[in-house]
């Protein structure tokens, strides 16, 4: 069993993406940073999509009621076991009664804690990921709070390993997002493009697992004709009339009516979960073909270490 001592700003259980139900309005959910979850699970010998704890900005702390191997990845943050510094990106052996603390993020936004056993949490439509607005998946469909206890079963003994250095994503608070033009890109004027691609924007505090709002020095203007609700996905960048674009994340609604100006490319999407309020964000245009090359190159780099392409 694992006991939550302090859940910080927001800690949820996340696992695989809830696939194939978007046309019923069910978002995919899953971790805001899919790559970091996969890397955490690799360190505890688990499948990439086994349920993990996703922490936000302030970290969290836990007490383990039995021995197991655990790991922490994601936002750069101090980790301590019973008050003694412990490594990120490495298997950590914990004993019954041990307490692990993840400190506030220095860079990035979300950290992941994986364990070498199965967290007994509820499945909904094929996934154990928590979707907070719908109140389903994970632990009672809600964010964790201090005192919550989650049963663990099937604890395996696994080899202790470290993520190879070159495969550890580095997050800083200047985020460059490669993106393809999307449906209403052509309606952005020159000044809007200057803001998005040259000056950059700042992530505001309107930030959640559903999306991150961006604010430039000036409003980004997109004079697209009114459109009817149209499908959107994680990585979609929409531009509402007041000129503050927002990027959609794992829990975003499945359809929306605002102009869809950009789509962050697949190989950069894991970074979206690491954009913290105040971070600088700038976009770079890529063609779909260039994006496909980048995804293949990234996957090639990880394919010896991770067993399935979850990036």
């Amino acid at each position: 069993m694992i006991e939550v001592l302090n859940a910080g700003l927001q800690t949820t259980i996340q696992a695989g993406v809830r696939e194939g139900h978007r046309h019923f309005g069910v978002p995919g959910s899953g971790p805001a940073d899919l790559l970091s979850m996969s890397l955490a699970n690799r360190l505890v010998g688990a499948d990439a999509t086994q349920p993990v704890f996703e922490m936000t900005l302030t970290g969290a702390s836990f007490r383990f009621h039995s021995a197991m191997i655990v790991s922490v990845t994601g936002a750069e943050a101090g980790v301590s076991l019973n008050g003694v510094e412990a490594p990120m990106h490495a298997s950590i052996l914990v004993s019954a009664g041990d307490e692990l603390e993840v400190a506030p993020a220095r860079h990035g936004c979300r950290s992941y804690l994986a364990i070498s056993g199965r967290l007994n949490v509820s499945e909904f439509l094929g996934s154990r990921s928590t979707y907070l607005p719908g109140g389903f998946g994970g632990h009672e469909g809600r964010a964790l709070k201090a005192g919550d206890r989650i049963e663990v079963s099937d604890v395996r003994s696994v080899d202790e390993v470290e993520t190879p250095r070159e495969l550890r994503p580095l997050f800083n608070d200047n985020v460059l997002l490669q993106s393809c033009p999307s449906s209403e890109f052509e309606f952005l004027n020159e000044d809007g493009q200057t803001i998005l691609f040259e000056e950059g924007l700042k992530a505001t505090t309107r930030s959640s697992r559903m999306g991150v709002e961006l604010s430039g020095d000036r409003a980004v203007s997109c004079n697209a004709p009114e459109k009817q609700s149209s499908p959107v996905f994680p990585g979609s960048v929409q531009c509402p009339p007041e000129g503050k674009p927002f990027i959609l994340l794992a829990d975003a609604q499945t359809t929306g009516g605002y102009p869809h100006i950009l789509q962050v490319i697949r190989s950069d999407r894991f970074q979206l979960g690491q954009i913290k309020p105040g971070a600088r964000v700038r976009f770079v245009l890529r063609t779909p073909d260039e994006a496909a090359d980048r995804l293949r190159a990234r996957w090639e780099a990880y394919s010896d270490w991770l067993s399935s392409p979850v990036i």
């Binding site: 696939e19 194939g20 978007r22 046309h23 459109k227 009817q228 609700s229 149209s230 499908p231 996905f233 499945t254 359809t255 697949r266 779909p288 073909d289 994006a291 496909a292 995804l295 293949r296 996957w299 392409p309």
Partner: peptide, 23 residues
């Protein structure tokens, strides 16, 4: 297709870019 989602006047399909190149 990974997802096939209806809008009011359009639809969007999502494909696995590791399996199919965009073209």
């Amino acid at each position: 297709w990974l997802e096939v989602v209806d809008g009011i006047e359009d639809s969007v399909v999502q494909f696995d870019p590791l399996r199919l190149r965009p073209d």
